[in-house]
Nucleic acid binder design. Structure first.
Lengths: 231, 231
DNA sequence: ATCGCCTCAAAGATATGACGTATTCAAGTG
DNA sequence: CACTTGAATACGTCATATCTTTGAGGCGAT
């Protein structure tokens, strides 16, 4: 998942600093300064900067330096950018954006999954729904989080749409972030749990409309709760 | 938009070759071979490869080489990857994926726009809806395409969600691709045009439900038409 | 005083040689 | 046959040299 080697380490410090806004839009970095700051060679700095350039976080121009691009140009769907922003000061805004994205995508994915899921997918989905219920009843939040992430990722994957499928990790990051943010509340809401089972049953039974409706209830609920927390 | 310099030129050839499947998953490239093939130095090849690595199209391992990653790992939301796939053999699959994504996202964006759009947004949206109608009536497909792209991009931007906003260019690429694919059909459907005006009016009037419904009709219609064309 | 051109220097872009290091594959050994 | 070991390989990193672009300041003419 991570970028390897020294450029990766440069990236791990520079990326979050830019994505969080600590290094503001319009700021200019000099390659030579970065060499000194990280104690690495030109080669390494250049490769790290190239990757940031690929994400449109920075642009490099002769005679000027490496300038941080305006946020509106960033590749906000890049998993690394999302992770960096979730870890920094932009976290509330990023959670809100992702919340709306989930509301848009996950119901559609659930509907598609009802007709596209393989038999294995359906079996695993049922199984996950059961384990989810058990973990919730036992108030085992860590285990619950794991199953919840797996559940949503599976629905996205089972939709048969590769773009939806790739949002699985991102949704996982949101759920993790949310659990951390709430500082581990007592217990997942029983109603939300029942909805997860409903989604699983509807997908297994091929009922697209029902799957979509139940999933929409889940994600809109999550978004409302999020907005309450963030205000 | 493009990556500058020699790495950019390497990327322009290597990226499409990988994204289109011409260089298949699992294939191994050697840095030294690439130097010869493109007539550039190690530096340049390495930087280009780093960018591809950032998109998860390839992974570089010692003693092995640069291996093309399985498609399931690609950053399918990266605008460059999308463009490359739309230009190559993967075009039908990419259009289908994007079609479903549009169905999920654009209605949600329209609903949000109804409450989040600025006055300027609303004015411009109305104006675009009118110009769209005129261009359609005159069967001026090129002009129509331009306004259509601007219309959908504006709705996405006016939603106030940065992630939705960033799909504007992608949707534009889809619309362009669709127009090219159809080899310029006679005339945009009058019904679809009326729906665009409905979306604009609903957003201007703050009617989120109506905007969402009309937009959903537009994008589901586009998806159905696309599926007809691709079968 | 303003405009335009010219020169120079700053900073990235590219090329190249040298060396480091992980990884694979195969030969060798018990 | 399993395990160890060593050498070959291809990427990783560093250092240096040179090229290219471009911004800023100076200079002169109008």
């Amino acid at each position: 998942m991570e970028i390897q080697g020294l450029p990766g380490r440069v990236l791990d410090e520079l990326g979050p600093a830019i994505a969080s806004g600590e290094i503001p839009e319009g700021a200019v970095l000099r390659g030579e300064d970065l060499e000194g700051r990280f104690g690495v060679s030109r080669t390494v700095v250049r490769e790290a900067v190239r990757i940031l350039e690929g994400m449109r976080l920075v642009a490099s121009r002769r005679r000027v330096g490496i300038t941080v691009q305006p946020k509106s140009l960033w590749d906000v769907f890049d998993p690394m950018v999302i992770r960096w922003r979730l870890a920094g000061a932009d976290r509330p805004a990023q959670l809100r954006s992702l919340g709306s994205l989930r509301v848009a995508v996950e119901p559609a994915a659930a509907a598609l999954a009802a007709s596209h899921a393989t038999d294995d997918d359906r079996r695993e989905l049922s199984s996950l729904a059961v384990e989810l219920t058990v973990a919730a009843r036992e108030a085992d939040l860590t285990t619950f989080l794991g199953y919840d992430i797996a559940f949503h990722a599976l629905v996205l994957r089972a939709s048969g749409n590769e773009m939806f499928a790739h949002l699985g990790d991102t949704v996982g990051a949101v759920l993790t972030g949310r659990t951390e943010y709430h500082l581990m509340p007592h217990q997942p809401e029983p109603y939300a749990i029942r909805l997860h089972r409903e989604v699983a049953d509807a997908i297994c039974g091929g009922d697209a409309a029902h799957a979509e409706r139940a999933m929409r209830t889940i994600v809109t609920g999550a978004l409302e709760e999020l907005n309450l927390q963030l205000d």
